[in-house]
């Protein structure tokens, strides 16, 4: 098991408020991991916010219970890892999983392509009504 140098998390309803709350957690994460270069902070934080925003905008509940978002962000000696999960969520539509950059006139649809450009690996898991994005960036 790799040593975790710093960790932050968030769990709450999948709403607009979650986005700024997660962003605040990311900002405070670097207080405990000042050795992480600015470029890595910037790219990783952008990818995490894109993944969280994708959930808030697109995740639909599987039953009556509303979708909840859960984020676990950790800094390891040479790697940043984020698990961004949607609980009580349906499986995403194929259209929402589009990872190629749309044309320059498009006003949406760049999120996943941007995530792929920002991090080293992107993994998607679905288990028991939970969709999880695992983003890693080697530093």
């Amino acid at each position: 098991m790799t040593d975790v140098v710093a960790r932050r998390g968030y769990h709450g309803p999948s709403t607009d408020e979650a986005i700024d709350a997660i962003h605040n957690e990311l900002d405070s994460l670097w207080d405990d991991a000042s050795f992480v270069p600015d470029m890595d902070r910037m790219t990783f934080a952008t990818a995490v916010i894109e993944a969280a925003a994708n959930i808030v905008q697109h995740a639909l509940p599987v039953a009556e219970k509303p979708v909840e978002i859960d984020v676990d962000i950790s800094v390891r000696p040479a790697r940043l890892v984020a698990r961004v999960s949607a609980h009580n969520a349906r499986e995403p539509f194929a259209d929402d999983m589009q990872a190629s950059m749309p044309d320059s006139e498009a006003e949406s649809g760049r999120g996943l392509a941007l995530i792929e450009a920002l991090v080293t690996t992107v993994t998607f898991e679905r288990q028991d009504g939970t969709n999880t994005w695992i983003l890693t960036r080697e530093t």
Partner: peptide, 16 residues
């Protein structure tokens, strides 16, 4: 100091 793809989409919409 931060913009995501939704912010970018808004700028493109405003440009149009």
């Amino acid at each position: 100091d931060f913009m995501d793809s939704s912010g970018l989409g808004a700028l493109i919409g405003c440009l149009k």
